[in-house]
Design a protein around this nucleic acid. Structure first.
Length: 274
DNA sequence: CGAGGTACCTGACAGC
DNA sequence: TGCTGTCAGGTACCTC
């Protein structure tokens, strides 16, 4: 799925395109994608509501509505949120349609149907999947190296799995985890507790840098990801290890390797990452 | 708590 | 052409 930079790019686009619009009609073609509440209440709670603000938390997209409700969307692997003219033909995998008062639609597309939508009370995030238990935002001003180091010190287990854990840190997925570990020169096999202070520092910087660069490039599109206007990102052209299996490492020339770790394809340079 | 597997779905691609 | 197996940006849930 889209990870933090992809979701951030989508949210930026949606903010510009649909903030202040009113939802005049909701069409649900695949009710199972509505995780909370039931489809009827979901439709009811959204119809004739104005969208005040669009924001991001981890990989979740939040639409604050007039009143006390917030619609929460998680794209999982293949979800897309696209703004299209009402007249545009529906895509094969367009499953939820929000008709807006300006003759545009907001459309939720999702070929693998893993995405989930929620309508919650703004003051209670509990029903929205893992939203309530997310870890800190890695790019927040108050997410300091000290806080990262402190959180790391109390954790056991493998560093790759930990970085993918949204309760530890919000927004990293498989691409940016592999890229951040490469930048930090840390092997994905390392125990989190074994990292030295300089390594923790490099990892902290690596995570922030890679996410910022990803955002600057408009995200990574190697297959499904598109922004709110349906355009691809460019960060796939700047990846150091992810999907670079067999290529020469840009640092040392060694072949980039791929293994299965923490249940995910994991790309690394065996010589630069110790 | 951690590790590892499965499930949820569809599509792309490799190999035969 | 078409079948089969594998893999995919994520997460929830299960067992050990």
């Amino acid at each position: 799925m889209p990870e933090l930079p992809e979701v951030e790019t989508i949210v930026k686009g949606l903010k510009a395109l649909i903030s202040g619009s009113k939802i005049v009609k909701v069409k649900v073609k695949e009710p199972r994608l509505i995780a909370f509440p039931g489809a009827a209440d979901f439709i009811d709670g959204l119809t004739d509501r104005e969208i005040l603000m669009v924001r991001r938390r981890g990989k979740y997209i939040l639409f604050d509505l007039v009143g006390d409700k917030t619609m929460v969307v998680h794209l999982r692997m293949t979800g897309r949120l696209l703004v299209k003219p009402r007249a545009a033909v529906y895509d094969k995998h367009t499953y939820i349609i929000f008709e807006l008062d300006n003759s545009d639609d907001l459309r939720f597309n999702n070929s693998r149907k893993f995405g989930r939508l929620y309508l919650i009370d703004r003051c209670n995030e509990q029903p929205a999947g893992g939203l309530a238990s997310l870890g800190p935002e890695p790019l927040a001003e108050d997410f300091s190296e000290d806080i990262f180091s402190e959180r790391l010190s109390s954790r056991k287990g493998n560093i790759k799995a930990l970085l993918l854990n949204q309760n530890f840190i919000a927004g990293l997925g498989n691409i940016y985890t592999d890229e951040a570990l490469f930048r930090a020169g840390i092997s994905p096999f390392r125990d989190a507790a074994s990292l030295s202070q300089p390594e923790i520092s490099k990892l902290y910087q690596g995570i922030r840098l890679v996410l910022q660069e990803g955002i600057k490039a408009g995200g990574t599109s190697f297959s499904d990801y598109r922004n709110a206007l349906g355009e691809k990102g460019l960060f796939q052209n700047q990846l150091s290890v992810y999907q670079q299996t067999g290529h020469a490492c840009l640092n040392c020339g060694q072949e980039i390797r791929k293994v299965k770790l923490a249940g995910r394809g994991t790309h690394y340079c065996p010589s630069c990452q110790q």
